[in-house]
Structures are given as structure tokens and as C-alpha cells.
Simulated assay, not measured.
Amino acid sequence: MQPTEKITVNQLGIILFSFVASTIILTLPGLMAMFAKQDAWISVFPSTLTGLLSIWVMILLSKRYPGLTIIQYSQKILGKWLGTCLGLYYIYFWYMSISIMTIQHTFFIKALLLPRSPSIVGSLTLLILCGLAVYMGIEIIGRCTEFLTPMKLIFLFPLLILKIGSVDPEQLKPILGDGILPVLQGALLPGGAFMNQLFILGWLLPYLNQPRKAAKVSLFALLAIFIFVFLVVITAIMILGSLTGQLNYSYLSVMQYIGIEGSFERLEAIAVMIWVLGSFSKVSVSLFILCISISQVFRIQNYRDLVAPITLLCLIGSVWVFKNGAELQTYLTLIYPSAGLVTQSLIPLLLLMIDSIKGKVSRSLH
């Protein structure tokens, strides 16, 4: 059954860019510098290859199974039972991802803006807004993202200009001082894990109104993500130096540093704005994917019937998933990179390989 809701090519590109780049701006420089140190900016290059792999696999699978999500065509590739098991795994994956995104948002807001507010308040307000957006449909999510993402960039680019006077290229030396291995660790672990998030194409491509342009717009989105992440990481290192890998929100410290050194103050308010808008876009898309995944696995005709109970379950999940920011940081550093690599890259690649083998066997038999 073909989806009746549709998003435009531009909306898909902006959704992909916002999904990957919206919240990692504050966390990714520190995570990459934790492994690659002053060479974290080099890690951006190989990490982009994982995003390229995700795009290639998802586009190829969507061409073989037009109009179907990864939940639907995995049952055709693996069979009903194995495909259903994979669908259940992806339901679990997205449920945990939304719970983690939500509590990450809450921890950030509490640490910077509302330290006395209960955690559940921050989680509840975000999830209510995201639930309303999902109930309205992917078209509304696309329009919201199309409007909010340029707004974030309008506020962010002046900060990039303000940083020019504070950068110190000497902080990048020695280049490859510890060899290539730390660079690859920074690329394949935190960098690659976040770039792999482009595998959301497996759920969004059936809703694209011009499927033939999917590859082009996805590559443009990846290029924009690469440029954005590269600028963020290299400027963070040139300003903070060795401190970059020791800070949970290193880019926030960059903004605060600009506020101290320059004529502007309290620039972290811009960071909060970027984070909140980015969290809304990311959680909305994830919640939409979770709802349609459940509806397709359990043959529920209208995914909107699931929005309210699933949103409530995600709120409960956000409360118990992590007790504090230290546990969250440990997860982002040590667990998510490997889990993300398997879930977002290796499993879709395995599906493509199995489908290709089945196709060759079928053709040889005929």
C-alpha cells in the first residue's frame, strides 16, 4: 500500500540535515576529540564514508522495493518470521533512541537553563509537541523542519564569523602526532555512529513525492552535514585545544568563550534555542518512524492511533533510561557507536547482500 502523505525533495534534504546535525553540534566535537584529540577534524573525512554507505544501501533497497519501508521489505527478504523479528528489534531500537534523545534534551536544559525543574517536565513538554507533530503527519513534520532549520542556521552562522578572531591554528598541531589509529577511532566510533543516522531513509523514502531525486538530495544533505560538522569540530579545537575532548558540550563552551571575549554576552541562549529546535525535529521524526514501524509490524491500519500511547511510553522510558548525565555520556561514548554501527549500517547492508544473493539464485534457476 502506497503512503498517501508525501514530502518534497527539499523537505527530505532538510530533514536529513537537521536529523544528523541538529543536536550533535554541541556534543560531537568533544566525543571525536576524546579519541582523536587535535586530529578530530581529520576524523570528519572518513566518518562521512559511513553516511555514504547508508545512503547507497537505502537507495538501492528502495529501488528494489518501491513504496515500502525497511520494516516491510525486510519481511520479503528474510521471510515473515525473521522479518518480523527484525521489525521488533527496530521498534525497540527507536523506542530506546527516543527515550535517550528526550532525557539528553532534559539534562541539557537542566544543566544550562532550568536546574531546579523536575526532569519529567522537560521531557513532557518536548514529547507533547513532538506527539502533536507526528499526529498531524510527516507532511507537517517536513514543513516544520523546513521552517525551523534555516532559522537555526541564521543564528549560528554569525557565531562562526565571530569565532574567526579567537581561533588559533597552532592548536591543530602536531597533525597525526599519535598516528592514524586515533583518527580512525574518532571517525568510526562517535563520528561514524552519527553519520549512520542517514539510514532513516529506509522509512522516509516511501513518502518522497519524487523518488528519482532521492539519491541526489541525500548526497547534497550529506555534503552539507560534512561541511557543517567539519567547521564545528575544527573551530572547537582551534579555540579550546586539548580541553575539547574533556567537555560534554564543548561547542557550548566555544559560544560562552565568544561571549566573554567579545561584545556579546549570554550567547548560550542561542545554543539553547538551537538545541531545543533540533531536539524537536529529531524526536518528531523518530517518533513518526516508531509509530509507523509498530503499525506495519502489527498490521495496524492507522499509525495515528498509536501516537498518544507511544508518546506516553517514551516519557516513561526517558525517566528510567539513565539516572544522571554521567551514565548518558558513557552510553554515547562506549555503547552507542557500536550499537549504531550494527543497527544503522551492518543490518541494512546484510539485507542488501541477502536480497542480491536471492536474486542471483532465482535468475540462475530460471
Rank of each mutant, 00 (worst) to 15 (best):
residue 5 E to D: 12
residue 7 I to K: 12
residue 9 V to L: 12
residue 11 Q to A: 11
residue 14 I to C: 08
residue 20 V to G: 10
residue 20 V to L: 14
residue 25 I to E: 05
residue 28 L to W: 15
residue 30 G to C: 08
residue 41 W to N: 06
residue 43 S to L: 10
residue 47 S to Q: 14
residue 49 L to N: 01
residue 50 T to E: 00
residue 55 I to D: 08
residue 64 R to T: 03
residue 65 Y to P: 05
residue 73 Y to Q: 10
residue 75 Q to K: 08
residue 82 L to Q: 11
residue 87 G to I: 09
residue 92 Y to N: 01
residue 96 M to S: 00
residue 97 S to G: 04
residue 99 S to E: 02
residue 104 Q to H: 07
residue 109 I to M: 15
residue 112 L to E: 12
residue 116 R to M: 06
residue 120 I to E: 14
residue 122 G to A: 10
residue 126 L to F: 12
residue 129 L to E: 06
residue 129 L to S: 13
residue 133 A to P: 04
residue 136 M to K: 14
residue 138 I to F: 11
residue 139 E to M: 06
residue 139 E to Y: 06
residue 139 E to Q: 13
residue 140 I to P: 01
residue 140 I to Y: 00
residue 142 G to T: 06
residue 145 T to Y: 07
residue 148 L to F: 15
residue 153 L to F: 15
residue 163 K to Q: 10
residue 164 I to D: 05
residue 166 S to N: 08
residue 168 D to Q: 15
residue 170 E to M: 12
residue 171 Q to I: 05
residue 177 G to S: 04
residue 192 G to V: 04
residue 198 L to G: 05
residue 198 L to S: 05
residue 199 F to N: 15
residue 202 G to W: 12
residue 211 P to Q: 14
residue 212 R to I: 08
residue 213 K to L: 09
residue 221 A to N: 11
residue 223 L to W: 09
residue 224 A to Q: 05
residue 224 A to I: 05
residue 231 L to I: 07
residue 235 T to W: 14
residue 235 T to H: 10
residue 236 A to H: 00
residue 236 A to F: 00
residue 237 I to A: 04
residue 238 M to Y: 00
residue 240 L to I: 02
residue 243 L to G: 09
residue 244 T to L: 12
residue 244 T to Y: 10
residue 245 G to R: 11
residue 246 Q to A: 09
residue 247 L to F: 03
residue 248 N to H: 13
residue 251 Y to S: 01
residue 261 E to I: 06
residue 262 G to I: 02
residue 266 R to S: 11
residue 270 I to E: 10
residue 273 M to A: 15
residue 277 L to N: 03
residue 278 G to E: 01
residue 279 S to F: 08
residue 281 S to I: 04
residue 289 I to Q: 04
residue 290 L to N: 08
residue 292 I to Y: 09
residue 300 I to D: 04
residue 301 Q to W: 00
residue 301 Q to V: 03
residue 302 N to K: 14
residue 305 D to K: 12
residue 306 L to N: 01
residue 313 L to M: 14
residue 313 L to E: 08
residue 315 L to S: 07
residue 315 L to E: 07
residue 319 V to Y: 07
residue 319 V to L: 05
residue 326 A to L: 15
residue 327 E to Q: 15
residue 327 E to T: 14
residue 328 L to P: 08
residue 337 P to E: 10
residue 340 G to K: 01
residue 340 G to S: 05
residue 340 G to W: 02
residue 341 L to W: 08
residue 348 P to F: 00
residue 356 S to F: 06
residue 359 G to C: 07
residue 360 K to Y: 13
residue 364 S to P: 00
